[in-house]
Each structure stands twice: as structure tokens, then as C-alpha cells.
Amino acid sequence: MERTRRNILKLFGISALGVSVKPVFNAFASEAGHLTGYRMEKGKNALKARQWAMVIDTRQFHSPDDLKPLIDACHQAHNVPDFENKNHEIKWIWEEEYHHAFPNKTTQFLNEAVEHRPFMVLCNHCENPPCCRACPTKATFKRKSDGIVMMDFHRCIGCRFCMAACPFGSRSFNFRDPRPGIPRLNRKFPTRTRGVVEKCNFCAERLAVGKMPYCVEASNGALAFGDLYDPDSTVRQLLKENYTIRRKQGLGTEPSVYYIV
């Protein structure tokens, strides 16, 4: 190579780049863990399942008042804010009418009881979740150990691709700091920060310590929760004995939330 000023500058540039690569690699390598003699384990009381699933007996819900305790239990415990501006709304569980919950299973002359019944909707924790396919950072992912569609709020870049991908409208985005919208903070559970997406987590934090999800606990038996792949689970018993439907089954996402109508 000719020794011009230009080429020497190029050489310097490339060398500087080379020197700066190692610290970057070191920084990533440090995440891999140290040899420090600690272990991480599942708790002894943790509930285990291949795929958590929920069966909702909608016949036991007659008015919005029947659903409210479930929603409140969830939203209070998980620090879900309540904003007046509908655009900024955040919800993990909410109420829909039949023809909104099941827009492609509706008919003009619907059974009256069903038409006015409040339907509880939430993240379906699909077995084949389109949101997880869409996420460019694996911030939302299908957890192998129990089938929960989880969110890693530390990793989410807020691109909202998952929200476009979800055919159930189950995801909410923090358009602003959620804290001013939370009437009473639960200091044992984190809030979210602005700019990340959130949704129902099937109460992963409770299953880990042997407890059922908040909504299930507050439902007086109207909700059942269990392992879809355990033939003896309550969920499977209910599925065996009742005709159930799921939301938008035709899309092949395989929702894990079943409705007895």
C-alpha cells in the first residue's frame, strides 16, 4: 500500500476499531456468569405445568359487578394504571360483549343471556403466539418451562410490533409514565416505565410460590386454572365435560383460554 497520509489515517482508523472490539466483547462475556459457587433453582412450592390454561365458565357471570372483583384484584396487585384518556388505556383483564370478544362467531339473533353476559378477556397465552414471532428482541417470548407468554420489560424497545401482531388486542403500551394513574401502589410488585408494552402474565409470580392467579382466586370457582397437558387437571376435566370455544380459533394461534358459554 502506498504510504500516503490518507492510507495511514485509514490504518489508524481500522486499528482503533480493532482495539475497541475487545472491551465490547468482554462486556457481553461478563453476562455469561462468574464461577462463584451459587445456584438458581425453582422454589419447592412452585406449581408446574407444560402449558398453563384457563377455563372461564361464562354462565356464572351475569353483570359487570360479577367481573369487577377479578379485574380489580389483578389490576391493583399488578400496579395497572387507570387513565381517563382512552388512547392511553392499559388493561390486563377487561370486559367485552360477546360480539366483540368473538367477532367471527356472532349471529344476528343471539341467545339473549349470552348477548348481555360480560365476557372476561385477557392475554390468551397462545401456544403459537404471533406476538413472540414479531418481537425483534425476544423481549416477549413463550416460556418453555410453563407456556406463559412473558414480557421482559428491561428488554422491550417499545416498537409495538407485538401489538400489531396480536389478533386479540391483549397488549397495552405505556404511552406515558404509569405511576400517576395508579391509585394505590403495591410496593411489592414493580410498576412499568413509559415506552414499554405490557399485558397479563398469568400471575407467573404467584404460580412460582404455589398460589393461583389473582383472578382465579377472586372468581368463586367461575375460573379454573391448570395444566392443559395433564389429563387429570381441573382444566382438562372441564374441557372433557363441557363444550368450550376459544377466541379466533381459525387463526391457528391456539389460545390457552377456553370459554364455556
Binding site: 462463584t36 459457587g37 451459587y38 445456584r39 438458581m40 433453582e41 425453582k42 422454589g43 412452585a46 417470548f141 416460556r143 418451562s145 410453563d146 412473558m150 421482559d152 407467573a204 412460582a208 410460590v209
Partner: peptide, 10 residues
């Protein structure tokens, strides 16, 4: 990510 919640120190 791994649903492990308990830390056992050395």
C-alpha cells in the same frame, strides 16, 4: 426467562 426464583448462595 427460566422461571427459577430461588437463589442458593455458596
Amino acid at each position: 426467562r427460566n422461571s427459577k426464583r430461588e437463589f442458593v448462595n455458596p
